[in-house]
Computed example of a mutant assay.
Amino acid sequence: MMTEERKASLFGLKNSNRDFSSKDNWGKNQFNSSFPAALACYMGKKVVKPVYLKMDSQYVVYKDYIEVPELFKIPAGVDISDVYFEFEGIYKPHNKYDETLLRSDLVIKSIPTDGLEDTYFSHHEVKLTTLPDSATFNKTEDKFGCEIVVRSVTIVHLAVNLIELYENKKKDLAAILNPVTSIISDWNDEKTILPLLPTMINVLNEILTQNIDKQSPLILNPIWKTNGKSSALADNCLDLFVWSDFAVTRLFINSINTSKKSIDRYSRSLVWLLYLLHQYTIRDKINSSEIYTMPFNSQTDKAFAVNGSKTNPYMACDELLNPRITREEIGNIILNDGQLLLSPERRFDAAIYYASDIFEQEE
């Protein structure tokens, strides 16, 4: 039985809606979002800046770095130890635009206080990914990549981020969308939409370039590197990549084949995004649940996925080749025997669970 002093915990997450002394909060779904938040806090403490993937005015994804307090949009003078990590939480500022009470993988806000309104700092989607994936494990290390599966709700978060930029400029947004919206009367009409895909791409690109200095961190994408396809962790095994909301658009835009005879997941993501922006120009609020009635030829369980062969060109850098956090440092992130509460159901859980030497204490 764990003593009060030895309560399992994760670095930096003392204020959270998850009680990490309980095994219930170490399941595969919880761990895959909790551990990345703790990794970010640990890197912040070490002053190791996550890699920040942004988009430039030529629609090219480039690599920058971002400090963790800036990533979480924590105001100056507020210490990261004094914020609240809410998992699967509602980012309340978005309620102003989306009536569905949209949830995020991670919401950063002030510590809840009786009688006071919470102050919201940021919201993020979280993707804990393995390196290499099944598409790249047989390639040279410099070509290793990770698969990213993007949830449908991520497209909604992206839409609301863009909507915020046009809060007092609805007419401007409507004018940019007009080459598309003036033609489409039925957003489920595949025959009408297909020939418009190049125009839709241009419209989205114009929105992004007009706001290029306003992109915001959206996806936290920690990578954990193994020795090839095995589950054995590499010595340098962890790092954190962050995708801006604008950079995320390249994952589906650059995968669209405009000559296809049907709308696939990539082109559907574009249609969803512009549909939501259009709805904002004609309504006070959007109803993002409407996109789930627009499946076209695919299920709506996810927006799309890109494998490591596609993500490598965006992410290739020293940090992908040699992640900056070592396997031994995992024992500084998972604290007080928290690893004993893991259920080794997924590869990263299993890699930690069976790597007992990480947690051995020196005499």
Rank of each mutant, 00 (worst) to 15 (best):
G115L: 10
S57I: 15
T113Q: 13
S356L: 05
Y84P: 15
T136W: 03
V83M: 11
R347P: 09
A37C: 08
V48Y: 02
D79L: 09
K143I: 04
L39C: 07
R327C: 10
A175I: 01
S231W: 12
Y353A: 10
F246V: 05
E190A: 15
I66Q: 11
D189G: 15
K143R: 05
T226P: 15
A175G: 06
N227Q: 07
S34L: 13
A40M: 15
L335E: 04
V180F: 09
R6C: 05
P323V: 05
K310T: 15
P75C: 15
N205E: 13
R324D: 12
I352H: 09
K96S: 10
I183Y: 12
A159E: 00
N322E: 07
F31L: 14
I330W: 02
D19W: 01
L71R: 06
L273E: 04
T136V: 06
K14M: 12
N297S: 04
D213C: 15
L208T: 05
K170I: 11
E328H: 00
A175D: 11
A303S: 01
L131W: 02
R347T: 11
Y62F: 00
D318Q: 14
D82I: 06
H278G: 13
Y353Q: 11
P198H: 12
D301E: 06
Y353R: 12
T199W: 11
G12M: 13
A8Y: 02
Y59Q: 10
V48I: 10
R268Q: 01
F35P: 10
D245W: 03
E328T: 00
V47F: 15
Y59L: 12
F121Q: 06
K261W: 09
Y52T: 07
T130P: 14
L131Q: 00
V68Q: 14
T113K: 11
D118C: 12
S110L: 03
I263N: 11
W224H: 08
L320S: 09
L131M: 01
I74F: 08
R346M: 01
G308E: 01
Y84V: 07
K63C: 07
L204A: 12
I163V: 08
Y166R: 07
N161H: 03
T113I: 06
N332C: 13
T100N: 05
F85W: 03
D245E: 02
R324T: 03
V47M: 14
Q339G: 13
G228V: 04
S288D: 13
L162A: 03
K63L: 09
N202E: 06
K285F: 06
I223F: 13
F85Q: 09
Y59M: 15
I80G: 03
L101P: 04
V248G: 02
S288I: 01
S216Q: 04
K170M: 15
T100F: 05
T249L: 00
L165I: 07
E5I: 12
E290S: 02
F246K: 07
I325D: 04
V149I: 14
